[in-house]
């Protein structure tokens, strides 16, 4: 396969279970069984070079777990993740991890409060030994700070001297300092005010164009996603229910859950368009419904939805897991 067409990152039927059992002694005394929570359930997707793939969904849908599985903060329970065609679990694949970085949600928690900004930004350079001398490290840090819209002198300060938006810029500078190709961004703007969010989204778009970066962008905010993403994956209770081009997904959503999410967004234009009222809540992930996980809230559910788990169905560029779509009921 041509190198440029090969996806940079591929997830193949990846699942992740968490042990949420009571402590061992309690289990023995109370006779309670081990309890597993499946946070990510058979997710397959591919991120192409230079694109932004967004994952959206409500809290507990597993999107942040996917981010942490990719950068190696969690190990997969099942399935495989490939980066540039190589299995990340293979021996020696840790070198591949240097080519990816992560930006976190909370700019107040993602910078070590006791470190100076220059040391925070320089840590990846030093740990990955990307500079020959301390002088080179300093020059690189100054360049990175300028690149994200700060000044070199800001390196001398501590994180608490900056506002939330500036801190997120520092996080971005740090993530870029290891020269990654691939950035996993976990809700990078959801802790920020809207005017600052716009600054950070614009900065991320500029950096992507300038440095040819590939983004996996995790967010619960569909409007933000529609602004930054080329393709969008929608997750529900650990499963990927729809994956499509952003333009397509926001205009012609296929999965009933995607439709419901789009209808739930407050209408800023006050156009007064008719919307289906949203019903129900996300079920307990410890005890997910049988069949399609969305069926208790779905207007189109039938007997098959309640018993048989829908498989991913390719519709042109889009992938959707829904019996109603397959049967052309909607």
């Amino acid at each position: 396969m041509d190198r440029d067409n090969r996806p940079l990152l591929r997830m193949l039927e990846v699942s992740r279970d968490f042990d949420v059992s009571r402590p061992w002694l309690n289990r023995v005394l109370e006779g309670a069984p081990r309890q597993l929570l499946r946070a990510v359930d058979g997710v397959s997707l591919a991120v192409k070079r230079g694109e932004t793939l967004a994952l959206v969904g409500e809290s507990g849908c597993g999107k942040s777990t996917v981010a942490r599985l990719i950068v190696g903060l969690y190990a997969t329970s099942q399935g495989r993740i490939e980066f540039d065609g190589i299995d990340l679990a293979a021996p020696g694949a840790s070198a591949l991890r240097r080519r990816m970085q992560m930006i976190f949600q909370d700019p107040y928690a993602s910078l070590n409060p006791r470190w100076r900004v220059r040391d925070i930004v320089a840590e990846p350079i030093r740990v990955l030994k990307l500079a020959a001398s301390e002088h080179e490290v300093g020059a690189r840090v100054a360049e990175l700070l300028r690149q994200v819209g700060l000044v070199a002198e800001d390196g001398e300060k501590y994180p608490h001297e900056f506002s939330g938006g500036q801190r997120q810029r520092i996080s971005i500078a740090r993530a870029l300092s290891g020269n990654p190709e691939f950035l996993v961004c976990d809700e990078p703007t959801s802790a920020l005010d809207v005017s600052v969010q716009a600054q950070i989204l614009n900065l991320m778009t500029d950096l992507q164009q300038r440095l040819g970066l590939t983004y996996l962008f995790i967010s619960h905010n569909l409007a933000v996603v529609s602004h930054i993403a080329d393709r969008v994956g929608v997750m529900y209770l650990g499963r990927l229910v729809e994956l499509a081009d952003a333009e397509e997904l926001f205009v012609r959503p296929l999965h009933p859950y995607t439709r419901m999410l789009l209808d739930a967004i407050p209408d800023l234009e006050m156009s007064g368009k008719a919307r289906t009222p949203v019903a129900g809540e996300v079920p307990n992930p410890l005890d997910p419904p049988a069949g399609c996980a969305f069926h208790p809230r779905c207007l189109h559910a039938n007997a098959r939805c309640r018993s048989e788990r829908p498989q991913a169905l390719v519709r042109g560029e889009a992938v959707v897991a829904c019996h109603a779509v397959e049967e052309r009921r909607i």
Binding site: T52, S163, G164, G165, Q166, D193, V194, S195, V196, Q197, A198, Q199, L201, N202, T205, N221, L222, A223, V224, S226, H227, I228, A229, D230, R231, D245, A246, E247, L249, F250, V251, L262, I265, L268, E269
Partner: peptide, 23 residues
């Protein structure tokens, strides 16, 4: 202007958001 909005195309075709400089 700085609020991202749905429903005017999506992805790369959209322009930059209006941003208020500073904080």
């Amino acid at each position: 202007g700085s609020i991202p909005k749905l429903g005017q195309g999506a992805g790369k075709k959209r322009g930059r958001l209006v941003q208020i400089e500073g904080a």
